[in-house]
């Protein structure tokens, strides 16, 4: 038998330490908080799964706040996916294929992605204002009453439009990459076969884009499900609680009310939801890959 050199563990030590301090210890702290009740002077009392029970009970105050913001979050992700994915595909389809226009378009498209999120929030906070904002004032000028500070519908529209403005280019760029990988012969064959524009999209472009689209959906879902900065800057979660998403709720609990136990329980559930969705996406994607591998293996 080969001698085992236990000193090799030392080589892993730095990584273990970094991961411990960056992830494991903070997470365990949260777990620790979630099973205790805290009072001033650093007094902690064991509360078992009490916070979790309260959180998941829709009739309690905490539970209703949790479910309300969860549904808001899901609705927001659903809406922006329903807009950004088709819009991104459309934009990608109409982007130029060659010449100097390609680089110009790519740079312009990438610009919103490069802006820090709180700056995006500030831009739209001002842009959408009814009195001095170009967007808000223009809409009010058309005779449509629009005030995102007092009207929940206007607030939602503002946040959705902002997100679409901010992130559609990501979807478009991913789709564009997928489109670029289609050899010309496919389009030529389709022309010879007399395929309509729609048939070309359905039978060539969409199947070839499916992989990148899955990535785009995953990224956009995750990001929108964790959204915090932009709505916080634009609406602060209001009017009322109408744009309070899970992350905003969490900050209110933890830093506003200093309810560490409730906030910790919410954090863990929030985290588990995201992990679960990640796992579903990962499974779907690897299953698709495995199918593609089978195809390639037979070819």
């Amino acid at each position: 038998m080969k001698p085992v050199n236990q000193k090799a563990w030392l080589l892993v030590l730095p990584v273990l330490l970094i991961v411990a301090f960056s992830a494991v210890i903070p997470l365990m702290t949260v777990v620790n908080y979630s099973v205790q009740d805290s009072f001033g002077n650093n007094q902690f009392f064991w509360n078992g799964v009490g916070w979790f029970a309260e959180l998941l009970d829709p009739k309690s105050d905490l539970g209703s706040r949790f479910y309300d913001s969860l549904w808001r979050n899901l609705a927001f992700s659903g809406i922006i996916l329903a807009i950004e994915i088709p819009l991104g595909i459309l934009v990608a389809l109409s982007m130029p294929r060659q010449g100097w226009q390609v680089s110009a378009t790519l740079v312009l498209m990438a610009l919103p992605l490069l802006i820090p999120w709180n700056v995006v929030g500030t831009i739209w906070q001002i842009f959408a204002r009814g009195d001095i904002g170009l967007f808000g004032a223009a809409i009010n000028g058309l005779g449509i009453r629009y005030n995102y500070v007092s009207d929940p519908v206007a607030a939602w529209i503002t946040i959705v439009v902002m997100d679409v403005w901010h992130w559609t280019s990501l979807v478009a760029l991913l789709c564009y990459a997928g489109l670029k990988s289609i050899p010309d012969a496919y389009y030529q064959a389709a022309r010879i076969d007399g395929a309509s524009r729609w048939a070309v999209f359905r039978t060539i472009q969409l199947p070839k884009m499916s992989r990148v689209l899955l990535i785009a959906v995953l990224l956009r879902f995750m990001d929108s499900f964790m959204i915090y900065t932009e709505p916080f800057v634009v609406t602060g979660g209001g009017p009322g609680n109408s744009t309070t998403f899970l992350s905003i709720e969490l900050v209110k609990l933890a830093l506003g009310q200093f309810d560490l136990g409730k906030a910790a329980a919410l954090s863990i559930v929030y985290n588990l939801i995201i992990l679960a969705v990640c796992w579903v996406f990962y499974t779907v994607m690897t299953a698709a890959d495995a199918r593609a591998d089978v195809d390639a293996g037979r070819a």
Binding site: A185, Q188, D193, T203
Partner: peptide, 27 residues
Amino acid sequence: IAQVFQFPVVYDTMTVRENLAFPLKNR
């Protein structure tokens, strides 16, 4: 005119039958 290209072009999502029927369906 029909053309066969250097790299085989098939419509990935379709069966062989649907592939062969495609030009006729379009017409």
